[in-house]
Amino acid sequence: MRFRKALAVAPLAAIALVGAPAGAAQAETAGTAPSAAAVQAADSPAVTVHLDDGANGFQVGRAISAIDEDNRGEFVRRAVDEAFQASGGRYNVIMMNLSQGYEERLEAKRLYANVRWGSINYGLWIAEAGEFTNTGDGGYINWAMKGWFDRDGMTVRFHRP
C-alpha cells in the first residue's frame, strides 16, 4: 500500500499527512441516512504541518488524522487534546475555525498546522505564551484550547506551566 509507505517516510521530515481511510469506511457503512455531520466527516481529517519547532509535529498530525469522529464539537475537543498529548503535554494548544474572525498574537510558537475536518478548515497552534482573540463565533464547534491560560471573554492569555 503506497499510502502506508508515505506515512512511514514522513517522520524524517514531519510534514504533511492525510488521514488513514479507516474513518471513511465506517462512515459510509453506517446504514441509515447520514446526518449532515456524518457526511462532513466521511473522510479522515487532513493535516498539513507548516511550522514545527520541537512540537513533535509528525505525531501531532498523525494523532489528529486518526480521529474518527462525526460530531464536530467533539472532534475539535479531541484534536486539541491529541495535539496537547502528542507535543509532550508541556505547551499550550489552540484550534480555531479559520472561517471565523480571529487575532493571533501567540509567542514562542512551536507548531502551526492546517486541519481540515469535512468542509471545515481549522488552524492549530501550539505555543508557549501569548494571546488569542476570537472575533467570530465562540461556539465549541469553532474553537478549543488546552494548557495554561486565563480567559477574558473571547480573549485567551496563555502562559507557561
Partner: peptide, 20 residues
C-alpha cells in the same frame, strides 16, 4: 489538495492558504 476533497468552504480555504 487537502481543500479540493471538500469544495464548500472558500473562506476556510483562503485562510488556510494564508496561514500555511
Amino acid at each position: 489538495v487537502a481543500a479540493i476533497e471538500r469544495s464548500q468552504n472558500r473562506s476556510g480555504y483562503v485562510k488556510s492558504l494564508m496561514e500555511g
